[in-house]
Structures are given as structure tokens and as C-alpha cells.
């Protein structure tokens, strides 16, 4: 079963691609938050968020770890956690966008919904969905009597 858990080369390449996307997004968010000068240069839809950027970098690193260890079953663990975190942050930013909208209604202040909704992590969930479904199904198939590790 541990054999079956190893992702194929295609999945590994796709995970690397997602990893690079998250790393670029995270680095821009982090550096824009850190240096105001760079923040002015970055596109309007890219938030200046130091910790949010670091979180995206962590997701990127998990995808990269999944990709580089694709010959081992651990790869599926990294992929599963990376996709779960992708989903968590996308849902979180959607909730925050909704909360900001609700707050603007309550307080009567202006709400820049485009800024909230255009957060890259929300849109990066879409390409993360296929590996999320795949790794989730694989993990759910694991049962103590059905799979073994060589460790």
C-alpha cells in the first residue's frame, strides 16, 4: 500500500508548480509588508501581509517537499497537509472578506470588496483542489490492516 501512496511523476511536477506559485505569492506579500517601497511596486491585488506571506511560503514549501520526495510515501503526507492548508487559508480569507463586508454594513464605512476577494490565496485554491481530492481519497483508503510502512 505504501507503494500505492507514492505519487506519480505528473503529480510531483504539478505539486512543484503549485509550490512555486505559493512561494512567489508569499514572498511578494512578505516583502511588500516588510518594505513600504516594494509594497508600492507590487500589484494592487497583492496584499502587504508579512505573516500571511510567510503562511503562503510554508504552503509552498510543503508542495515542494511533496514534489522532491515523490519516490517515498511521505510525499503524500506533505501533499495532503499542503492542500489542507491551501483550503484552510482560502476559506479563512473568504470569511474575512465576508466579515469586512458585514462590518461595513454595520459601521457604515466603505468596503473595498475587490481587494478582499482578489487575495491570491483564495484563487490558488482552485488549482489545489485536484491534489486535495486525490491525497484525501488516498489517505482515507488507509486502514491499519490495509496498508503497511516499511519503517
Amino acid at each position: 500500500m505504501a507503494e500505492a501512496l507514492r505519487p506519480n511523476r505528473g503529480i510531483a511536477i504539478y505539486a512543484a508548480f503549485l509550490g512555486v506559485l505559493y512561494l512567489i505569492t508569499g514572498l511578494i506579500e512578505f516583502l511588500s509588508g516588510l518594505t513600504p517601497h516594494l509594497g508600492e511596486l507590487s500589484p494592487w491585488w497583492m496584499p502587504r501581509d508579512i505573516f500571511g506571506g510567510l503562511s503562503a511560503i510554508v504552503i509552498g514549501l510543503l508542495y515542494i517537499a511533496s514534489s522532491t520526495s515523490w519516490r517515498r510515501y511521505e510525499s503524500m503526507g506533505y501533499l495532503l497537509v499542503a492542500t489542507l492548508l491551501s483550503a484552510l487559508f482560502a476559506v479563512l480569507y473568504l470569511l474575512i472578506a465576508g466579515a469586512n463586508g458585514l462590518d461595513s454594513l454595520i459601521v457604515g464605512e466603505e468596503w473595498s470588496w475587490m481587494e478582499d476577494i482578489s487575495r491570491p490565496e483564495i484563487w490558488l485554491l482552485l488549482p489545489s483542489l485536484p491534489p486535495l481530492i486525490l491525497s484525501w481519497r488516498m489517505a482515507m483508503r488507509l486502514k491499519p490492516e490495509a496498508a503497511t510502512s516499511e519503517a
Binding site: M1, A2, L5, L54, I57, V58, L61, L62, A65, Y73, E74, M76, G77, Y78, L80, V81, A82, A139, M140, L142, K143, P144, E145, A146, A147, T148, S149, E150, A151
Partner: peptide, 22 residues
Amino acid sequence: ARPLTPSDLLDKAFLNRGLGIP
């Protein structure tokens, strides 16, 4: 060999020496 569980799979990432804290 010891059976592999979903928890083992997740712990590979969550308890990873380098990635656990991030």
C-alpha cells in the same frame, strides 16, 4: 510491518523537524 495509518501520513508533515514549527 506496522500498519500505516492516515495519522502517520499527516504526522510526516506536522511533526517534520524543519516544517513542523512553520
